[in-house]
Amino acid sequence: AVSDRLIGRKGVVMEAISPQNSALVKVDGETWRATSGTVLDVGEEVSVKAIEGVKLVVEKLE
């Protein structure tokens, strides 16, 4: 799938994300809905860990 190429890519949080709420991230110039197990604020850099349906699963870039 096209989205599989995004695993391992870096992105930027466009809307705050919490474990209860998905929000938008920008990866390679494209906007995607994403979820995370932690709270992520706007502007934080993230890494794509997986794809669940049409959502990216991201975590904060260390």
Rank of each mutant, 00 (worst) to 15 (best):
W32T: 00
A23N: 05
L61C: 08
V58R: 00
P19D: 12
G8C: 08
G43E: 02
L61E: 06
S22L: 13
E45K: 09
Q20T: 12
E15D: 06
K60E: 02
S36H: 04
N21R: 12
G8R: 04
E45F: 13
R33F: 14
E30A: 07
A16R: 13
S47C: 15
K26M: 14
I51C: 05
V2N: 10
I17Q: 14
V48I: 10
A1W: 13
N21Q: 11
E62Y: 13
A50W: 07
M14G: 00
G53Y: 03
V48T: 02
S47N: 09
V25M: 03
K49P: 01
Q20Y: 13
I51N: 02
T35N: 06
I51E: 01
E62P: 11
L24Q: 05
G8N: 05
V54K: 12
E45M: 13
N21K: 12
V48E: 01
I17T: 15
A34F: 07
G43W: 04
K60G: 05
G29F: 03
G43Q: 02
N21M: 11
V25I: 10
A50Y: 07
K10V: 13
S18I: 07
V42S: 04
I17R: 13
A50N: 06
W32V: 00
P19M: 10
A23W: 15
K26A: 09
V46F: 06
G43H: 03
E52S: 10
W32D: 00
K49Y: 07
E62S: 12
A23G: 15
L61S: 08
I17D: 13
S3I: 11
K49L: 13
E52H: 10
R9L: 11
L40N: 00
L6N: 01
S36F: 06
G29A: 04
E44L: 07
V12C: 10
L56T: 01
V54L: 14
V58T: 01
K10R: 12
V42I: 09
I51K: 04
V54N: 15
E15Y: 09
N21I: 08
S36K: 00
E62D: 11
R9C: 10
E45V: 13
R33E: 14
